[in-house]
Each structure stands twice: as C-alpha cells, then as structure tokens.
Simulated scan of single mutants.
Amino acid sequence: MLKIPLAGDFVGASDSDFVIAEWTQDGPEWVAPLHYHRNCDEAWYVLEGVLSFLVGEDETLVPAGSAILVPKGTVHSYRNAGEVPARYLLVMTSKTHQLIDAIHSSSDRSPEGMAAVFERFDAVLLGWPRQTKV
C-alpha cells in the first residue's frame, strides 16, 4: 500500500500488524482523553513543532526530530505544546486505528457511549486531563 502524500492519511489496514498515520495538530487542546490500551503500544515521531505528552502523572515535551513510545497499560494523552501546528507520525496497532475510526464515527458522544467504544477495542477511557503548561 503506497500513499503519496501520506499527510492527513494513514497506511495500513484493519488486518495489518501496525498502521502509520501522519497528522497535524493545530490548537493546544488535548487530542484524546486520558486512556490506556490493555494490549497495544503506541509510538509518535514528531516531524515539526512540539507535542506535549501526559504519560501517567508526567508531562513531557517532545520536539521535532524526537520520538516517544507509550507501552500498553500506560495512561496517556497528548497535545500541541507549541505556537505553530505540530506535524507527527503515529505508529499504532490496527486495533488502535479501529478505535480511532470508531470514535470519529460514533453518534453517541456521551461519556458512557465513548467508554463503551473504548471498551470494544480493549481500551479504558478515564476522562480529560487537566490543562497544564510545561
């Protein structure tokens, strides 16, 4: 599977071992609520800008040219921490990609509805992180 350009899209399939997405985050809001995946690791590589990751209790800045791995079972979220849009690659399992698709296509945005979506993909939704600055 070839994607030219990859920007704003992903490469991989629902039966792949992993999926790579290239996304951009403009604003400083958290991209996802705090959550963890019971059986899936995730990794990000920052191409431009800077992302801030809340991993457990620690918030860490990840600038362009750097990468972070969040192991399965680890509570996490992330956001753009810079003044310019952050562009990054997200390397995830196909199950995590299916979760993201299900979140975006869900009509029930209630906390209970979203918790059920996370649970369907072996993940646990915990709620939104506090707004912090590092």
Rank of each mutant, 00 (worst) to 15 (best):
93 T>C: 05
126 L>V: 02
11 V>P: 00
42 E>R: 03
108 D>W: 13
53 F>G: 11
39 N>K: 14
67 A>F: 14
56 G>P: 07
70 V>M: 10
64 A>I: 05
127 G>H: 05
132 T>G: 12
100 I>Q: 06
60 T>A: 10
60 T>P: 02
63 P>F: 04
14 S>R: 07
80 N>G: 01
107 S>A: 13
39 N>A: 14
36 Y>W: 12
113 G>F: 10
112 E>W: 05
130 R>Y: 05
2 L>T: 12
92 M>A: 04
133 K>F: 09
4 I>N: 01
74 T>C: 06
4 I>C: 00
64 A>R: 08
23 W>A: 06
89 L>F: 14
15 D>C: 08
47 L>T: 07
44 W>R: 04
8 G>D: 05
69 L>F: 12
119 E>F: 05
106 S>R: 06
36 Y>T: 01
87 R>N: 03
44 W>G: 08
115 A>F: 08
42 E>H: 03
20 I>M: 10
74 T>A: 08
77 S>M: 07
25 Q>H: 15
41 D>V: 02
55 V>P: 03
128 W>A: 06
46 V>F: 10
59 E>W: 00
22 E>W: 04
100 I>C: 01
55 V>W: 01
33 P>G: 08
86 A>Q: 04
25 Q>C: 11
7 A>I: 12
94 S>G: 11
38 R>Y: 10
66 S>V: 07
96 T>L: 12
119 E>M: 01
75 V>M: 09
6 L>K: 00
42 E>F: 05
17 D>Q: 14
114 M>P: 02
111 P>C: 09
24 T>Y: 12
57 E>A: 11
68 I>Q: 04
37 H>Y: 11
11 V>K: 00
46 V>K: 06
42 E>T: 08
49 G>S: 08
113 G>R: 10
42 E>L: 03
56 G>Y: 13
91 V>T: 05
129 P>I: 01
51 L>W: 04
104 H>D: 10
92 M>C: 06
12 G>T: 01
8 G>Q: 05
119 E>N: 12
26 D>G: 15
127 G>K: 02
90 L>W: 03
90 L>N: 10
48 E>H: 07
32 A>E: 05
59 E>S: 09
85 P>H: 05
117 V>D: 02
50 V>W: 00
75 V>F: 09
23 W>H: 09
49 G>I: 06
33 P>C: 04
105 S>R: 14
114 M>Y: 01
57 E>L: 06
65 G>A: 13
112 E>M: 08
